[in-house]
Design a protein around this nucleic acid. Sequence first.
DNA 1: TTATACTTGTCCAAATTTGGTCAAAGTTAA
DNA 2: TTAACTTTGACCAAATTTGGACAAGTATAA
Lengths: 96, 96
Amino acid sequence: MTFGQKIRQLREEAGMKQRELATKLDIGEGFLSKAENDQKLLKREDLKKLSEVFKIELSGLETLWLANKVYDLIKDENQGLNALKVAEEQAKYVRK
Amino acid sequence: MTFGQKIRQLREEAGMKQRELATKLDIGEGFLSKAENDQKLLKREDLKKLSEVFKIELSGLETLWLANKVYDLIKDENQGLNALKVAEEQAKYVRK
DNA sequence: TTATACTTGTCCAAATTTGGTCAAAGTTAA
DNA sequence: TTAACTTTGACCAAATTTGGACAAGTATAA
């Protein structure tokens, strides 16, 4: 599941319209629409707001948000998947 | 192994000094030093040159180069590893 | 000591990305 | 049809990143 899919799910489960959530986030509905379709990413600070509005943990949102960024970096790359593996090795190795 | 470690290895195996390689890449030695220490990343175009200079395949360099970018994105993040997993899922899922 | 090689901090212009807006177009249900 | 909702494309200023240069500092060996 992508970040966009997640916020759409949360919003719909809460019975909210885009306009409504967009207002809470202080952005336009067009921008939220793009965010839900993973064409744009919300600001990091907005994660906090989302976790409050939907009463869910921040960390899950952070994971998906970050994953979107990572995916964006590799999506058009031949070596994308391999790069993820290497990065993972590095992340594990450096971990104290 | 990081991208910086790799080019240092290649350079040393070839018995080259930083200055020498830097000249081939048309950059200063200071910059190459930082690249070898993963403080800066070379340009993507430089990968081609490296593969020619050291007569190795481009794809391996691309993988490490990309991995550095990915790692940079997640290195200070709590959810970094989880994000990699999610991104991997997405990459696999979308794959035709 | 001196030369050679490497590292590091500071600085910077230019390129790119971010985080949007707005209006028009498309969709859906009544 | 009409109204409400969503999507999309074009555009943009501001923030950030990129890709370095340069000089000073460090390390090592002769």
